[in-house]
Design a protein around this nucleic acid. Structure first.
Lengths: 345, 345
DNA sequence: ATAAAAATTGCAATCGATTGCGTAAAATAT
DNA sequence: ATATTTTACGCAATCGATTGCAATTTTTAT
């Protein structure tokens, strides 16, 4: 790839015997440049195949028109949907997205954040990784005067903008639904409790049991079962208990729920009559398993759009917003075959 | 968000009574700065919470250490996997990714590319949108001296680096597999023929039929059936033919194949005994339908990594590479239940 | 102790675009 | 025709970091 000298506003100015100032103004639709000169400049810019150097422009202007996004995994359905949503709203306002993945590793998350600070992004959107234990790096973002929006998995103690799902409520509704459908011994597969979302889901589970006066049975609550494999393993143990559960709420993910379903199939336990299953996230596949899996839709693309809009709202009125804003999106319980205890499929 | 004055190398220099030059050199591990001064500088930089302004640095150095990626949809499995792969290899070399989605719209694709040129990215990685009809914008990338890597869906006539799947061969193997399993009337659901990948898949289909001396039946080839809905619609028509097919190769996607399967279920046609089905992409759900769907794995994450590595290889030896390089990845046929005509599930 | 070589540091220009301020030219008012 | 206001454009500094070259200091050799 040969080195190419790109045309600058100086080249245009030189060709026209004017100053770069005028070229710059013309290209920025400033009113203080003659209409004819402007046309001439634009025409010449076009001829010379001029492309503005955003780096220089941003350096001068002191912002980058860029938003940094940090997620655990880009290629996880939920996250890629959120990113798609963010992109949609921000692109049309001329903002670019820089995407990083932390791979669920705290140190890499810090690195990502630092890179984004170096890039002088105008905003950092983040969903923290599972093993995050402190939030100094996020505080640092704020200290650098960069807007910070946390979503889904958030550090609650930090006063930032947040866009979250009402996990507690969704979880409450899911478990209530199970109870109302006649399930009596409901197990919970829970995720890492250092993440707020999993704590909330557990709380929703507990509240539902309490509300319906169902006793909590400790041995039916399984920690860290948030992959398909871990879900399957947990299920094997649960179903081999002297008093096995008659329903499993895989609060961690649909993948975990899928693991449950597969084990049930192998063990020849009928779903939903002998075992109810509820997942979380509304992954595409939950619709096509047999039976299809009851789950919770998080409106991920919408969440992304909300994040984008929130950002623009914030930069629109700089001083007005004092208190940290939290936008909570209500997820929706999608009832499917895997929890219809009393009816046929 | 209050405006914060960020510390620069000048602040550090001032505090230490030295020049910004030395600070810069110290921070870049230049050998021409005294070890003690360096330590002092680094310590002070740390104290002042200094973060390099990458914009300024890049402007001066004439590159951005940034790679632009343009895909039709970020939240499509294949693409988000490729992106994840690219990110993995490029991140560790200090490169950032700017992601854009064209939404399958040619004009937006052009806009995206222009934005990336403005950003002075060092490389643009692109998979063209379905309705792309000309490639002036890609030529423009080259004209600006920006490295261009096309992947998957590529404009063949452009001499650029390409990372592709051997679609023709994969398709050939899939159809051969169907024939060898006793299917005789094999329908093809094809995608937009302006995209190379769909042309190649069709060619593979035709070559397989020819090789096995099976006649091509025009009415079994259906155009533009590349969503679940279109796949379903096409299937209804096909299965209502006087001489319906006994197998359908949904060369466009697994979603299309899923549409086929659902229609077959509704019409009470047994898969795989009465109808064989083969999809494309190895989406997660193909494993868990019943029967599970035979499909083709494209090694998408690996593809992303390959793209990243190719880029670094290229910038390593600038002059050596003259001819356009094409890396072809061989996809793998994953045989599952939906094509086992003669055996039980 | 002196000359030569090497190691440090400073100076000033540069990357490309933007913008406040000043001035010349054109348009309008008196 | 002269005074005043507008409009259009140029000058020069600025954003923050980098780097070739020059200048100074330190080290090594003689």
């Amino acid at each position: 790839m040969k080195k190419v000298k790109r045309t600058t506003i100086y080249d245009i100015a030189a060709k026209l015997g004017i100053t770069a100032s005028s070229v710059s103004r013309a290209l920025n639709n400033s009113s203080q440049v003659n209409e004819k000169t402007r046309e001439l400049i634009i025409k010449t810019a076009d001829e010379l195949n001029y492309k503005r150097n955003t780096l220089a422009s941003n350096l001068r202007k002191g912002h980058s028109k860029t938003i940094g996004v940090v997620v655990p995994r880009i290629n996880q359905n939920f996250f890629s949907n959120v990113i798609a949503g963010i992109e949609e709203t921000t692109y049309q306002k001329g903002y670019n997205l820089i995407i990083c993945q932390s791979g669920e590793v705290h140190d890499k998350e810090i690195q990502c954040v630092n890179t984004l600070i170096n890039q002088h992004v105008d905003c950092i959107v983040i969903s923290v990784s599972a093993d995050s234990y402190d939030y100094q790096h996020l505080q640092n973002v704020l200290d650098h005067g960069i807007q910070l929006i946390q979503f889904d998995r958030v550090a609650e103690e930090l006063e930032t903008l947040k866009v979250i799902n009402d996990n507690e409520q969704a979880s409450f509704e899911a478990v209530s639904h199970l109870i109302e459908n006649g399930y009596k011994r409901i197990a919970l597969l829970e995720g890492p409790q250092n993440l707020n979302i999993f704590r909330q889901r557990k709380n929703g589970y507990l509240r539902a049991l309490e509300t319906h006066k169902v006793k909590v049975i400790d041995e039916l609550v399984v920690e860290n079962a948030w992959t398909k494999e871990l879900g399957a393993e947990a299920t094997r143990k649960l179903l081999n208990l002297p008093h096995p559960p008659d329903a499993i709420f895989a609060s961690t993910s649909d993948f975990s729920a899928l693991g449950v379903l597969e084990v049930a199939n192998v063990m020849n336990i009928k779903v939903p009559s002998e075992l109810g299953i509820c997942g979380y996230s509304n992954e595409a596949f939950t619709e096509i398993t047999s039976p299809s899996i009851t789950t919770i839709d998080q409106f991920s693309v919408y969440m992304g759009k909300t994040i984008g809009n929130l950002f623009f709202q914030e930069i629109a009125n700089v001083e007005v917003s004092v208190k940290p804003k939290i936008i909570s999106i209500k997820p929706e319980l999608i009832i499917r075959g895997s929890t219809k205890k009393n009816s046929s499929l």
